[in-house]
Design a protein around this nucleic acid. Structure first.
Lengths: 124, 124
DNA sequence: ATATTATGGTTCATATGTAGATCATAACTT
DNA sequence: AAGTTATGATCTACATATGAACCATAATAT
């Protein structure tokens, strides 16, 4: 069984996405990755074991533990939980409570944001 | 200027990566996305404005605000900071302090994890 | 009311993140 | 000391996340 793919297209210069991250973002990610790595070692878990439990490759776990900003947030959070790093410093039940509170707050806020005048908001 | 790509290969069934996320992971992401959305509206920022500041497309911001687990963690964190959601509930200076503490802790832990016997660790 | 703008949801092309394999070295055990 | 295992780093193929351009509708302003 074979598939034959042929495509012809104009060569466009690849517009590679080079993102810029703020220092705080990089440090937040760095801290989280450090906590994950420390927690894994404290639990005496192998990189392979954690990767298996998270359903990811060992290479991806390495990138997560190095604080790579381009990993999926879901996987990073999952790994964090597996090794015992609490996100948001709360247990699961209070987490749900927070979610409900946030939803209530959202219900009160306007559905869409509209500018009255052309004012630049840079102060916060 | 043209490029011609041709490739022939056996048709392999696509082994799509269907990840499974724990409930806690999904809720943590859901909470973060809710906080981001609420914070954006409180600051009266348009989705397009935040997207521009973060250097991402409006569509990606939508996914972030919906709690999509497959977004890059760096972008999610960046957006969170832009709209004023504090990660880790600390300012930047104490964040760096935490990073140092984590690094110190890592220096004390063994470099690699070695199992003495074949024990299954499932209790935590 | 009408007009204007923001948002939500598509679709498509492609840049890239991930799995899997391999290898070299470090780190631990005996 | 030798033997064993964990880790770090590389490479390739591929599945997919993202940007861009749409459109339809909701939400706000006048």
């Amino acid at each position: 069984m074979f598939m034959i793919y042929i495509w012809i297209k104009d060569k466009k210069m690849p517009k590679s996405i080079t993102r810029t991250y703020s220092r705080y973002t990089r440090e937040a990610c760095s801290l989280l990755s450090g906590l994950i790595r420390a927690a894994r070692k404290e639990h005496k878990l192998t990189a392979q074991e954690v990767a298996d439990r998270a359903g990811i490759s060992r290479g991806l776990l390495q990138r997560i533990e190095k604080g790579d900003l381009k990993c999926e947030i879901g996987v990073v959070f999952e790994v964090a939980i597996i090794v015992g790093v609490k996100l948001f410093d709360t247990d699961e039940s209070t987490l749900r409570k927070h979610i409900r509170q946030t939803e209530d707050k959202l219900a009160l806020l306007p559905k869409s944001v509209r500018k009255k005048t052309k004012v630049v908001h840079d102060e916060f």
